[in-house]
């Protein structure tokens, strides 16, 4: 149970996900603002939150601002909230460039507010358990990692996500999750190579990372499937063991025959009945804010992952391997 008053900026796919999670955490005060007052009002109605038609007032009235805006707006929003002296939770990627990211971190430090970047993959139970086992040495020395994350084009492939200048493109937006994961479990990356294919609405990328330890990682990532399909997988190999997991595996509860499922505008992984990673992440962030303990994912982690993602993107553009 947290006593934080939470204000959300945005009313899109992530705002909804966060709103649901904050509700599950039973926060005493929850409000949101979006430039689109209509969707904000709808969401607020569904989850029981206040709506503000003015961002500055929302920021003034809460303890922590949860930024669920498109990536190109992260910089501006973080600066504004930091100036107002409020703690910040901000969706990943931190920013579109490491320079912007560093500037945001600097501003938060200067303003004396804390900044948590929502690298949620670290809270997905299977990824977390696998990382724990790998980091505890259960697999021996890591040798080769395979990570997969392929969904459908968000908003049909025509929104701000599709514009690299606004979202960073698929590598910075989505492959970032698995890049951060590879960095987390296998350490620093020294060289990357990637290929990317596009149609008018689809993007599909593969990357190879070489870690300084000598381990290698393959990442597959796409906004490529038909609407509603989203698949993830991990395969971690060390000299003493192997961990396999795929979202193709049957869930802990299955309703047959298959009923038509709700399809959101932005691809998000299916969540097991047992644990919602978005809720666990926000619970962790709230706990750290209230107790002053350090975040599990630091702003430096967020910038490091972005830096590798930018190298991967530049390799995909140039067709050359890129040193990090």
């Amino acid at each position: 149970m947290t006593h934080l008053r939470v204000g959300i900026l945005g009313s899109g796919a992530m705002a909804q996900t966060h709103l649901r999670a904050w509700r599950a955490l039973d926060v005493p005060w929850l409000a949101l603002h979006d430039r689109n007052l209509e969707t904000a009002t709808d969401l607020a109605h569904t989850y029981g939150a206040k709506v503000y038609d003015n961002a500055a007032e929302l920021i003034r009235d809460c303890d922590v601002v949860d930024i669920c805006l498109p990536t190109f707006l992260h910089l501006e929003a973080v600066m504004q909230v930091a100036l107002a002296g409020k703690h910040i939770i901000c969706e990943k990627p931190i920013a579109l460039s490491t320079k912007e990211g560093m500037a945001m971190i600097q501003s938060c430090e200067t303003a004396g507010v804390r900044l948590y970047i929502a690298m949620v993959l670290r809270f997905f139970p299977m990824y977390r358990r696998a990382a724990e086992l790998a980091l505890a040495g259960k697999l021996g020395t890591l040798q080769v990692l395979r990570l997969k994350r392929v969904g459908f084009p968000p908003h049909g492939g025509t929104s701000w996500f599709a514009d690299d200048a606004l979202s960073g493109g698929i590598v910075v937006d989505m492959m970032l999750h698995d890049i951060d994961y590879a960095l987390w479990v296998a350490g620093d990356v020294v060289r990357v190579f990637a290929r990317l294919t596009r149609t008018t609405t689809q993007q599909y990328a593969q990357a190879i990372l070489t870690h300084s330890s000598g381990a290698i990682t393959h990442i597959e990532c796409g906004w490529a499937y038909q609407n509603g399909l989203f698949r993830t997988a991990l395969d971690l190999v060390g000299d003493a063991g192997l961990l396999e997991w795929s979202s193709d595996a049957p869930p802990s509860s299955l309703r047959l025959p298959n009923t038509v499922e709700m399809i959101g505008a932005v691809p998000l992984p299916a969540i097991s009945a047992a644990s919602d990673p978005y809720t666990m992440q926000l619970q962790h962030a709230a706990h750290c804010l209230e107790t002053g303990s350090p975040f599990e994912v630091t702003t430096q982690d967020a910038v490091r992952a972005l830096n590798v993602a930018l190298a991967v993107r530049s390799s995909a553009l140039s067709g050359r391997a890129v040193m990090v």
């Binding site: 020395t141 040798q143 080769v144 070489t210 381990a215 290698i216 393959h218 190999v237 000299d239």
Partner: peptide, 15 residues
Amino acid sequence: ALGHPLGSSVETSGI
């Protein structure tokens, strides 16, 4: 990218 674990005379992994 190939992986050569210590003590192996050949690569045991490759992507």
